[in-house]
Amino acid sequence: MHREEDASSLDGTLVLRLGYDGGAYAGFAEQPTETTVAGEVRRALEVFLRRPIELTCAGRTDAGVHAVGQYVSIPVTADELAVPRSRWMRAFPALLPHDIAVSEVFHAAPGFSARFDARSRTYTYRIATGDAPPLLTRSVTWWHRWPLDVAAMDDAAQRLVGERDFKSFCKTSSAIGRPTHRCVQAVSFARECSLGEECLAFTIRGNAFLHSMVRTIVGTLVEVGCHRREPAWIDEVLAACDRAAAGPTAPACGLCFMDVAYDEGALVRCP
């Protein structure tokens, strides 16, 4: 393909939808001494394109968090945009580790950003209850064991919908000097069965999320589901704007980044 290009020669944006099992990674974002999803994806793209690249993701996931609908964007040249989808899809399985997979390739306009052009992001957290732990789905669920009052949890969760200050629900150090208001657009609970194993799936959609926000929300909702707290307690937690007011942070393994929404027509499937 091409060697290093200067910015003036970049004619469009390549966008990848990818998934990963986060168990072996120290999160999405690159870190100098850690194995990360972004590091593996960047290396694969640089091998294919034979030049350094700049990669932007829709949302950084923490260590151990999974994804099926993460999006990344890469500025590319006209020649690189001309690479057919079939060639990309043949190359990625050979270039990426077995626990990272590209599911679709898109084109977008110059300057498109997987992060800044996202209209919403959706996460699902899966919890298994019961005396027996999940076996085949154990890496993607939190085995909580104890029964949960889903109606009470839903009552509590609905109190999070709307524009709110979620400072109580994020990692304390990440909130210092940064805005903590976010808009939660929808929350829901559903029973799921995968490979014969049942779980409770909590899905949340919002414009953006703070560091550990979804996992802290889940840990807080579980306090309600166990009847250690009443649903109205969520109102007090929001008002406190203090991480100490909320419940524990749920384990990373149960969280999955499900999807990102963009403006209609912003992404065009690679031919």
Results as ranks from 00 to 15, higher is better:
residue 2 H to A: 12
residue 4 E to D: 11
residue 6 D to M: 06
residue 7 A to N: 08
residue 7 A to Y: 10
residue 11 D to C: 13
residue 13 T to M: 14
residue 15 V to C: 12
residue 16 L to M: 09
residue 18 L to R: 05
residue 24 A to P: 06
residue 25 Y to Q: 09
residue 27 G to S: 07
residue 30 E to D: 13
residue 33 T to R: 15
residue 59 G to D: 00
residue 59 G to P: 03
residue 62 D to R: 11
residue 64 G to M: 06
residue 65 V to I: 08
residue 68 V to T: 15
residue 68 V to L: 13
residue 69 G to P: 00
residue 69 G to V: 01
residue 75 P to E: 00
residue 76 V to F: 09
residue 78 A to R: 14
residue 83 V to K: 05
residue 87 R to N: 11
residue 89 M to R: 08
residue 91 A to S: 15
residue 92 F to W: 15
residue 109 A to Y: 08
residue 109 A to F: 09
residue 109 A to H: 12
residue 110 P to E: 04
residue 110 P to D: 06
residue 114 A to F: 05
residue 118 A to G: 04
residue 122 T to E: 00
residue 126 R to Y: 01
residue 130 G to K: 04
residue 130 G to C: 07
residue 137 T to Y: 00
residue 149 D to A: 12
residue 150 V to K: 07
residue 152 A to P: 01
residue 157 A to G: 10
residue 158 Q to Y: 02
residue 159 R to G: 06
residue 160 L to F: 00
residue 162 G to L: 09
residue 167 K to V: 03
residue 168 S to G: 03
residue 168 S to C: 03
residue 169 F to L: 04
residue 169 F to R: 01
residue 174 S to P: 08
residue 178 R to H: 14
residue 178 R to V: 15
residue 181 H to C: 13
residue 189 F to M: 10
residue 192 E to C: 12
residue 192 E to K: 11
residue 197 E to A: 07
residue 197 E to T: 07
residue 198 E to M: 10
residue 204 I to E: 05
residue 206 G to E: 00
residue 209 F to D: 01
residue 209 F to V: 06
residue 211 H to S: 03
residue 212 S to P: 00
residue 213 M to A: 09
residue 215 R to Y: 09
residue 217 I to E: 02
residue 218 V to N: 08
residue 219 G to P: 02
residue 221 L to P: 01
residue 228 R to W: 06
residue 233 W to C: 12
residue 236 E to W: 00
residue 237 V to F: 00
residue 238 L to H: 02
residue 239 A to G: 13
residue 242 D to P: 06
residue 245 A to P: 05
residue 245 A to K: 03
residue 246 A to F: 03
residue 248 P to F: 02
residue 249 T to H: 12
residue 251 P to T: 06
residue 257 F to D: 05
residue 262 Y to T: 03
residue 263 D to C: 11
residue 270 C to E: 00
residue 271 P to H: 04
residue 271 P to W: 00
